[in-house]
Simulated scan of single mutants.
Amino acid sequence: MNKLDVTEAIILLKKEKSLTWEGIAGAINMSPVWTTSACLGMNSCSEEIADKLVEYIGLPSEAKAALMAYPTKEWDKSIPQDPLIYRLYEVVGVYGETLKEVIQEKFGDGIMSAIDFSMEVDKEECSKGDRVILTLNGKFLPYKSW
């Protein structure tokens, strides 16, 4: 099995067994965001985590190797059509330069790591419509001169 095969199997079993990302993450003692990303093929699992996923979700044993394989992190470079993904794309398009300016003013010339990184998704109930709270937490990596 490759990562795509495993992702498809996970999606089918998740639906068939009425599992949630939150529940799967709890079963393997990892965050829901990281767990979802790993299940969608964008992160690699340790052997211990791969074993737990295979057992909890009910994946074939061949899925373990694919879950542990290092991913090629690529995505379609066209403008996303899914409304939720498009809105995140739009946020970066509208506020990307602003974020770059503010981050570099506070930290200096560099970037926010997507490797030494964590993310949380929270819900805030509001009478005018519930709010989505995204927390992106990445290590600052200064550019070096040589």
Results as ranks from 00 to 15, higher is better:
Ala27Val: 02
Asn137Ala: 13
Lys14Leu: 04
Val33Lys: 12
Ile10Tyr: 04
Ser127Cys: 07
Lys123Cys: 14
Ala66Thr: 05
Leu99Thr: 06
Pro80Ser: 07
Asp76Val: 06
Ile49Tyr: 10
Leu67Pro: 03
Leu59Asp: 04
Leu53Pro: 03
Gly93Ser: 05
Asp116Ile: 07
Gly58Asp: 01
Ala38Leu: 00
Ser44Ala: 11
Met1Asp: 02
Leu40Ala: 08
Leu19Asp: 03
Ile85Ser: 13
Lys106Glu: 11
Met42Gln: 06
Gly138Ala: 10
Ile85Leu: 14
Ile49Asp: 11
Ala25Thr: 12
Gly108Tyr: 02
Val132Ala: 15
Val94Asp: 15
Lys14His: 06
Lys139Met: 10
Ala50Val: 05
Ser127Lys: 14
Ile57Pro: 00
Glu74Asp: 14
Trp75His: 11
Met1Gly: 05
Thr135Pro: 02
Leu53Ile: 01
Ser61Tyr: 04
Gly129Ser: 09
Leu13His: 07
Lys3Gln: 06
Thr7Val: 09
Ala63Gly: 08
Lys139Phe: 06
Cys126Leu: 08
Ser37Leu: 10
Lys139Thr: 12
Pro142Leu: 10
Asn137Pro: 00
Ile57His: 00
Pro71Leu: 00
Leu12Trp: 11
Val121Pro: 04
Gln81Ile: 13
Lys73His: 09
Phe140Ile: 08
Val54Glu: 00
Asp51Pro: 01
Leu59Arg: 00
Pro80Thr: 09
Glu55Tyr: 05
Asn2Val: 05
Glu74Lys: 11
Asp122Tyr: 12
Lys64Trp: 01
Met112Pro: 08
Asn29Pro: 00
Val92Ala: 13
Pro60Gly: 07
Asn137Lys: 13
Met1Phe: 08
Val33Ala: 13
Lys52Thr: 05
Asp109Glu: 14
Leu4Asn: 12
Met30Ser: 15
Val121Asp: 04
Asp109Gln: 14
Leu67Glu: 03
Leu12Thr: 14
Thr72Asn: 09
Leu136Tyr: 15
Leu53Val: 01
Glu90Thr: 08
Val6Ile: 05
Pro71Phe: 01
Met112Lys: 09
Leu84Pro: 00
Ile24Asp: 09
Tyr56Glu: 06
Val6Phe: 03
Ser127His: 09
Ser78Tyr: 02
Met30Ile: 02
Val54Asp: 01
Val132Pro: 04
Glu16Tyr: 06
Ala63Glu: 06
Ser113Trp: 02
Pro60Lys: 11
Ile24Gln: 07
Ala65Asn: 05
Leu40Arg: 07
Ile85Lys: 09
Ser118Thr: 15
Lys106Leu: 13
Leu4Pro: 00
Pro60Leu: 08
Arg131Gly: 00
Val121His: 11
Val94Met: 10
Lys14Ser: 02
Gly108Ile: 02
Phe107Val: 08
Ala65Glu: 13
Ala65Leu: 04
Lys52Pro: 07
Ile111Phe: 05
Asp116Met: 09
Val94Ala: 11
Tyr56Thr: 07
Phe117Lys: 08
Val6His: 02
Tyr86Met: 11
Pro71Val: 01
Gly108Lys: 03
Ser18Met: 04
Glu90Gly: 02
Met112Phe: 12
Lys139Asp: 10
Thr35Ile: 07
Tyr143His: 12
Leu4Tyr: 09
Ile103Met: 14
Ile133Met: 10
Asn43Glu: 14
Lys3Ser: 01
Leu84Glu: 12
Gln104Met: 15
Trp34Leu: 08
Leu12Tyr: 11
Arg131Thr: 12
Lys17Pro: 04
